[in-house]
């Protein structure tokens, strides 16, 4: 069962990461930004935007499947920790640099997400316990 969760969380992160990478490629190829139909058509005329759609839809169904079985706290945290994978990949794919502000900001954000995940876990703890008095 542990392995099921782990694969689920990794899949969720994978889909979310795919979506963000695709968003970036789609946006870059549709530049310049304009509040116009031409811009929207440019966005939808190249394949990356569909990678974003696949990422979103995949993440949605993975999330729904996970929530049926997995504890909500770790699931919540996993669903937002794609910031880490996206940051690391953007160094490699887009030649971005991690400056001090981004690294410090990321550490604070991740710590915050972990706190929020722990808060969710605490509130939903009783559900996980089977009622021993029955039968």
């Amino acid at each position: 069962m542990k392995r099921f969760y782990l694969i689920g969380f990794l899949l969720l992160m994978g889909f979310d990461t795919l979506a963000q990478i695709s968003f970036k490629y789609a946006g870059t190829q549709a530049l310049p930004v304009a509040a116009s139909l031409e811009w929207v058509l440019r966005v939808f005329s190249q394949p990356w935007v569909y990678g974003a759609v696949i990422g979103y839809v995949g993440a949605f169904f993975t999330w729904m499947a996970l929530l049926k079985h997995a504890p909500i706290g770790p699931a919540f945290a996993a669903s937002h920790l794609e910031v880490v994978s996206v940051m690391l990949l953007s160094i490699w794919l887009f030649d971005e640099q991690l400056n001090t502000a981004r690294v410090l900001g990321a550490i604070a954000i991740i710590a915050g997400i972990v706190c929020l995940g722990m808060a969710e876990s605490r509130e939903h703890v009783p559900e996980a316990e089977p009622a021993p008095a029955e039968a």
Binding site: K24, G27, L31, V33, V49, M87, S90, F94
Partner: peptide, 10 residues
Amino acid sequence: IAFLSLIPLS
């Protein structure tokens, strides 16, 4: 998409 096209993804 518009937002991300204007700043670094990270």
